[in-house]
Nucleic acid binder design. Structure first.
Lengths: 117, 117
DNA sequence: GCGGAATATGCCTGTCAAGGTATATACTAC
DNA sequence: GTAGTATATACCTTGACAGGCATATTCCGC
């Protein structure tokens, strides 16, 4: 579980890790809080947190025996950056190429912002 | 390779699949073109395309013996949607203040020993 | 019909991640 | 010191996916 896992996309491919990240949006949490809210075993939470920490998704501070984890933005911005070129697919403005491709579309109509077919 | 793979995040966790998607941004392509440009074997390309098609990332039209694949927007919008709540992490003016408030959000730490491990 | 080109699929195998259990570590309170 | 709490790590097993190779399918031209 704590192996290579180089790419940020592989990190967020795991549903429990996404759940942890989403939980941390509202505020930082201790391992026990995450364990309780997401109904995962404590070692599982710790292992996922380790993966997330080593990938830069979260950081922790020590508070007595507890460790408080909170989000770090950088890796998710990588995802955002990769996603950027695809936004033209659903942006309101439809350029020439997309209109061309839409004309070739043989599948049943779907909700599109702009014209097609 | 052609198993469940339910979530869109698991689909885009595979580097070759991300490469295929990125390649299709500029225009639709045949399997042979993808195979050539990305230097993958033909069965590998076809299998990845099948995964992408079944997940709704791409669709294909038949052109003689060829099949032309092009992007479909919906699944990537799911990624975009999941990412949305995290944008507050890097929207400039809230950053420092909200992260400070996050720490106050839970029960106040007692004597804090600094930093991560 | 036949042969060839383009793509899809089946089978097999190596690899690796995810989780469980048990244990280790770190810290607090007494 | 001891006991208790919170978290991390080691070891192991299971399962799934990615890719290679061989083969099947589909379509074209002749």
């Amino acid at each position: 579980m704590l192996a290579a896992l180089e790419s940020v996309f592989e990190i967020i491919a795991e549903p429990n890790r996404r759940a942890i990240l989403s939980l941390l949006v509202s505020s930082q949490r201790s391992v026990g809080e995450i364990e309780c809210q997401l109904r995962m075993s404590q070692p599982t939470v710790s292992k996922h947190l380790r993966v997330l920490r080593e990938a830069g998704f979260v950081e922790s501070t020590v508070d007595a025996q507890r460790r408080l984890y909170r989000l770090k933005p950088e890796p998710l911005r990588e995802v955002e950056a990769w996603l950027a070129p695809f936004r033209r697919l659903w942006s309101a403005h439809v350029d020439a190429l997309e209109r061309y491709l839409d004309r070739m579309d043989t599948s049943p109509p779907k909700k599109r912002k702009k014209k097609k077919r």
